[in-house]
Amino acid sequence: MIILENVVKSFPNGDSMIKALDGVNLKINNNDFLVILGPSGSGKSTLLNVISGLEEITTGTITYDREDIGKYNVKKLEEFRRSKIGFIFQAYFLLPTLTVEGNVRMGAALSGSKEVKNIIERVGLAEKSKKYPYQLSGGEQQRVAIARAIAKNPEVLFCDEPTGALDEETGKQILRLLVELNQSQNITIIMVTHNPAIGDISKHLISMRNGKIINESYGEPKNIDSIRW
C-alpha cells in the first residue's frame, strides 16, 4: 500500500517558488488501478514522479508498505526502483541501440527473469524480437516498453500517458495489456492521462488541478471496448 500524506512539491520559478503539488493526500491499495486525470500543469506527472521516487518531495511523507521513501538514500531509492516498480512513458524511451529482445532484457536482467521470449510473445511481438525501435510502430514500441517493465516483475507499474502518442485502436490494445497485467499478475497500475475516457477503465480515479486533488472516486471499471476518445 502506498500512502501520501500532505505531500508538497515546489519548484523554483524565477525568484519565487511554485507548488506543483500542494498538500496531496492519497491512499493507493495493492492491485489498485489508479488513473490520475488532469489538464496540463495540474501536477499529475509530478505526482507520478514523486510516488515513484524519481523526484524528491518538498514536505510531507510517502510511505510504501509502511516505509517512508522520502527518507531513502540514493542506494535505497535505486533498490526501490530496481525491485518494486516499473515505468511506461508516452515517448516509450527505449534504448535505440538494442533490439526488442535487448530492451526487454534490460528489465529481465534486474529481476533475474529468464522469460524474455515469453514476455515478448505475451505482448505480441514474437515476430519482431530482433527488430530495433526505429523499425517498429509507436504501438509496438509501447508494447516493448510494457514488456520491459513487466520483465522486472514489478509490484507497481507507473504509466505516464502511455497512449498519448497512439491512435485510438492501438491505445486500446495497450490498455488491454495493462488491465490484463493488473488482473492476472496483481500488478498495481498508476496511470497518468489527460484523456477522461481512460478514467472509465480504472478502479480508482482522481482528478487534479493546480497541484491539488479536486476529486477522488472508486468504481467498477468499464470494458475497454466501450470507451471512446
Partner: peptide
C-alpha cells in the same frame, strides 16, 4: 532510462 529502471 537505465537509472529510472533502477540500475545503479
Amino acid at each position: 532510462i537505465l537509472k529510472i529502471n533502477g540500475y545503479t
